[in-house]
Amino acid sequence: MTGEILLFDGTALPPPCEKEILRYSAAGGDTEETKALLRRCLAALPHDTFCYRVCTAELPLRAVTQEVTDLGFAVWKSRDLARYLAGCERILLFAATVGTGIDRLVLRHGRTSPATALLYSAIGTERVEALCDAFCKKMAERYENNTLKPRFSPGYGDLPLSVQADVFRVLGCAQKIGLTLGAGGLMSPTKSVTAIVAIK
């Protein structure tokens, strides 16, 4: 397991953004009732719901052809990824999670109030995206002499989700940040993201 662990405390992230959360919860023209419920959910969030953790490693690219990316520890077939990595020699690979607290809240309300569960789930999605943004911003500062491209995740384009097994193995996600990969390829905690950032 190579790489490092970064912990973010809540203050390193912007506060939850209502507009984004409503977008993730498929609330288009949201009503007053929806907004009121969201505010109640946010107000009722236990202070220790989120535990923001990222593990990351900088890895060299062994070879990138039109179809195949050789990362040394694995070979991935994806035209979209190859296009994304064109001209780069190194990548940052990272996994980010906000922990199990929000999954617990979704479970707690899922059976008794699906509306509440839906909103908590959307809050979790918003938080993990905010965490990824905070991480990428921090990396952009560290790699000030390079350009970091927008992140690219397994499952985007034709990069299959099956590459997650390689990502988890090389980063040691389970031991480092408690992020696990289930038999069906699902990540637990569910509010988690893995991604590649090309270093140019």
Binding site: T100, F168, A174, Q175, T180, L181, G182, A183, L186, S188
Partner: peptide, 14 residues
């Protein structure tokens, strides 16, 4: 003996 690398139900699928 270390962890399985999987999360148990109800949070995970093991």
């Amino acid at each position: 003996i270390g962890p399985t690398g999987r999360l148990l139900r109800p949070l995970g699928d093991l």
